[in-house]
């Protein structure tokens, strides 16, 4: 799996650093081996108790309605706990932990329940750790600290995966919005209209320009009306993007008419010293269309 496009998820290459950041040392990996004995002994009991606890809650029961499913989940939960203390803490371990977060998100299980279950698990394990070392404070403390670190590492991966899952949706929606908000259509033989809604930033201009140029070639249009009624403000970067687009259209031998320049936009453009001298501009799309039809010598009455 590749998470390099995520701002939140730790990529495996960084995970070694992440372990250092969490002060997870070789010594901790050794301690976990000791903890594994406790885990293996008490695994069944802990998981049963955990599910008894979880199933008291209405909002958990929504996710765990089917007895078959509960049985299966208990099994994988046991696996999960056992792996936590017997892991190689390498790539496979890392992948699996991230997948847990992604799966939880997919099933719609909120982090609140995930963290809550963890808290209950810690509560059950603490007395068992003390028991195991015959209540030796120093040893218990050391083991518990290790236990705490691996849990934190685990939770960090799962929570980052949650965030990443949400982030992916947002990124996908952003792309869809960009594609949706630049419809380009032929409204007359030889004339295409491109209403721009929202801001024209770098990535969007690129897509807009591509779409417009393709549409012009496809429809063999000689005039493109770019309507900017829906653009809230134009700064120099937006103006530059517009001018670039117009120049590209001209290279195809077509003309551009900019329509929908509102009085406020006109004022700011003047203040910014932006010159649209060689470009035909009209206040409304209707006025722009009239000019286009005249240019094509199409009579309107």
């Amino acid at each position: 799996m590749n998470y390099s496009n995520s701002n939140y998820i730790t990529v495996f290459e960084q995970w070694e650093d992440q372990k250092k950041f969490f002060c997870f040392t070789e010594k901790d990996a050794e301690n976990l081996q000791k903890l594994h004995t406790i885990s293996a002994q008490s695994c069944d009991e802990v998981v049963e108790s955990l599910y008894d606890h979880l199933l008291q809650f209405e909002d958990v029961r929504i996710f765990l309605s089917n007895p078959e499913m509960i049985k299966r989940l208990k099994e994988s939960q046991k696996q999960y706990f056992l792996e936590m203390t017997a892991g190689d803490y390498g790539e496979a371990y890392y992948e699996k932990r991230i997948n847990i977060g992604i799966t939880h998100k997919r099933l719609g299980i909120p982090p609140r329940l995930y963290m809550g279950a963890y808290s209950y698990y810690v509560q059950l394990m603490l007395p068992k750790i003390y028991n195991h070392v015959d209540f030796d404070q120093k040893q218990a403390q050391e083991l518990f600290l290790t236990f705490f670190k691996i849990i934190n590492l685990d939770q960090e991966l799962a929570i980052s995966a949650y965030v990443h899952a949400v982030e992916s949706v947002v990124m996908q929606q952003a792309e869809e919005i960009i594609a949706m908000s630049t419809p380009i259509m032929q409204i007359w033989d030889g004339i295409v209209v491109a209403p721009v809604i929202g801001t024209l930033d770098g990535q969007r201009t690129q897509q807009f320009m591509e779409q417009l140029l393709n549409q012009i070639v496809e429809t063999k249009s000689t005039i493109a009306l770019i309507d900017i009624t829906g653009v809230p403000q134009i700064d120099t970067a937006t103006a530059q993007h517009l001018i670039d687009t117009i120049n590209a259209v001209r290279l195809l031998g077509s003309n551009v008419i900019i329509t929908g320049i509102r009085p406020i936009i006109a004022q700011t453009l003047v203040h910014l010293g932006i010159n649209l001298k060689e470009i035909i501009t009209k206040p409304s799309m209707g006025a722009g269309l009239k000019v286009a039809l005249d240019m094509l010598s199409i009579k309107t009455s």
Partner: peptide
């Protein structure tokens, strides 16, 4: 007013960029 808002927002756009 709307005109001033647009002037200010355009400036913000320039400076943030």
């Amino acid at each position: 007013g709307m005109t001033d808002v647009t002037r200010i927002v355009t400036s913000v756009s320039e400076l943030a960029r």
